[in-house]
Design a binder for these strands. Structure first.
Lengths: 342, 342
DNA sequence: GCAGTTTTGTCAATAAATAAAATGAATTTT
DNA sequence: AAAATTCATTTTATTTATTGACAAAACTGC
């Protein structure tokens, strides 16, 4: 394999040679240190600019011990849920002077582990991660290593970490309550695997809403699809093979809600006339669609910005706080929920 | 600001101390050089593993001149169009041993420039970029600097670069032809700014299809929204203020198609009964929605993988080819186009 | 047992930037 | 006038891993 330096880079050495000053003086001048005469500084800076010098962060990082780079480890950026996070995180991180390396885990624990390794290998200053949660192995590893990290969107009940999540339980409660208020009694919870904290919490919310309404919890109406949502078709098929024994669906995500909506439509069921659907994430706040899904807003934008702020606080503050941030969720009404008579 | 090294890293020095060998010997052993006895190598490797050593790419990169990192510069990852690309690029790049730094330009030329600077500053080996194209300043800068880069999705007619695009002209032609074949004669082209090559090409395709059908081109039916699609509402309003003077819309992207669909729906126009719509990108191949937009597939997955292959070829091949890859586009029928009598 | 070869491992230099210490000159203090 | 201080700059050391040159064993064959 060819291993050429990609280009002719102008180094401090080159500037030093051209200006006649030492490398160190050039370095100090460019960094606006005050023990350099203004004329010298101006001269060096000009020459540097003329020569098109771009500082070599590698050398600087090696010396200083930080890279001004963070790793963002997510399930899959092609999922709008993560895509929105990524956008906001990158933007905020950049504002604060950090670059973002993206890694997709595809919700695979091994890929997650190698992602962490790669991140460490690249000497990132910190990590923002939405953990797969199949086990807590990788998060424990992160803690062991001692690298600053923040969880986003998911958390561990019995591992002490920083995290930024939305109030999933509240979201699940609100969603279910909304359906109940509209007369629905048989509500299907179409969930993600409950080893994922947000799935578990939303289910908890669903359960408590039913309890408030004194409706017994029917395990047949609680259903799980995989985190990567493969072969949902089969699961849907199984669900409606004896007709619909529910009048409403509370889906773990908008993506899943649309998918089941589409599936039902193909089977000649109408939403909301035959089935009401409520999603989670309110992706439509970012994207106009000709179908308006009722959804729970999870404030991804704020979550993302907070996660960066939190991480950078850990990186730069002498006395970093432990951040456990839980953002409120709220109902956003669309046209996918129908009032039915009780 | 605190600037602490983020963690206690195990260095070769530490391993050397523990094993009693020199740093150099440790380095050689870990890199499987053959001038080390198998026993020594095994011993050092074991110790290294026990100590949890993760190689410091910074030092290695500084010495070797490459970072195994590429920069991906896109408009906005929260747009599914770019999100899908990003996912595929990251995946492919990782397969080939590279990490990906993401930067969003928000289609802003200055942000694009600073993104390039940051990428250079971080010593990325190469760049995959979807250029804003407001001018060719930044791309010329990239060429000047001499860093390997590949354009994705857009290209410059009169600047020689590597690129991977889809056949936008063909796509525009197919889309328009499909509408024409279904009896439409007044077709609104809802385009992106034509300084973007894909917009220009799609418009060219639109034009040639109309020409084939001997239909004069009506400038009033060619309309542009900004690249970031802000205040599209106003533009839509202007378009239909005197009622619909078109029976079909060919939209630059699926996102835009949905948006105008939604807008029309709010104004009590029905799609496809009152207006047919055809989009571009076929995002639904990745995501099920209960509305099925007829669209042009642009094979983003293949485009993305190709762009990485192309870049890595430039980085590693002794005799890198110039890659000008144009992938075919094809019609994917949905339910948003209606046959009307002529 | 000695020249010649192979194996095995060490030392010093290097990459680019930064920090700490040292130098030399000018200026101020005593 | 000698000593102390200040300023502007250079020299040397440091960060970690890798390379090339070379030294010290170990082994081969005559």
């Amino acid at each position: 394999m060819k291993q050429r330096p990609t280009k002719q880079i102008v180094t401090l050495k080159d500037i030093a040679k051209k200006t006649g000053y030492s490398i160190n003086t050039v370095s100090r001048a460019l960094r606006d240190k005050d023990d350099i005469s203004p004329e010298t500084r101006a001269f060096i800076k000009n020459t540097s600019k003329e020569m098109g010098h771009i500082s070599n962060m590698l050398a600087s990082s090696l010396r200083l011990g930080y890279t001004k780079t963070i790793a963002i480890i997510l399930g899959d950026v092609s999922n709008p849920h993560f895509a929105i996070m990524m956008k906001e995180i990158e933007e905020r991180a950049r504002q604060l002077g950090y670059n973002s390396i993206l890694m997709n885990t595809s919700e695979d624990e091994d890929l997650e582990f190698t992602s962490i390794q790669m991140a460490l290998n690249k000497n990132v200053d910190g990590i923002i991660i939405c953990p797969t949660q199949k086990s807590d192995k990788n998060i424990k590893y992160l803690k062991d290593i001692g690298i600053p990290f923040v969880l986003i969107g998911r958390y561990y009940e019995n591992i002490e970490t920083d995290y930024v999540i939305c109030n999933d339980k509240m979201g699940g409660f609100i969603a279910t309550k909304h359906l109940l208020e509209n007369g629905h009694r048989r509500i299907l919870m179409l969930n993600a695997p409950i080893y994922i904290s947000s799935a578990k919490e939303r289910l908890d919310g669903y359960r408590s809403a039913l309890q408030v309404y004194n409706i017994p919890i029917n395990p047949e109406l609680i259903c799980e699809v995989s985190a990567t949502a493969e072969n949902t078709e089969n699961i849907f098929e199984e669900l409606i093979k004896d007709g619909l024994n529910f009048t409403a669906i509370f889906a773990f995500s908008d993506i899943l809600a649309w998918e089941v909506w589409d599936y039902l439509k193909k089977r000649n069921y109408s939403v909301p006339n035959d089935v009401s659907i409520i999603g989670f994430d309110n992706i439509c706040s970012r994207m106009s669609l000709p179908v308006h899904l009722t959804s729970i807003s999870s404030q991804k934008g704020r979550m993302s910005v907070s996660s960066v702020n939190c991480l950078i606080d850990k990186l730069t503050s002498e006395t970093p706080m432990v951040h456990k941030i839980v953002l409120d969720t709220e109902l956003v009404k669309g046209e996918s929920v129908l009032q039915i008579e009780i």
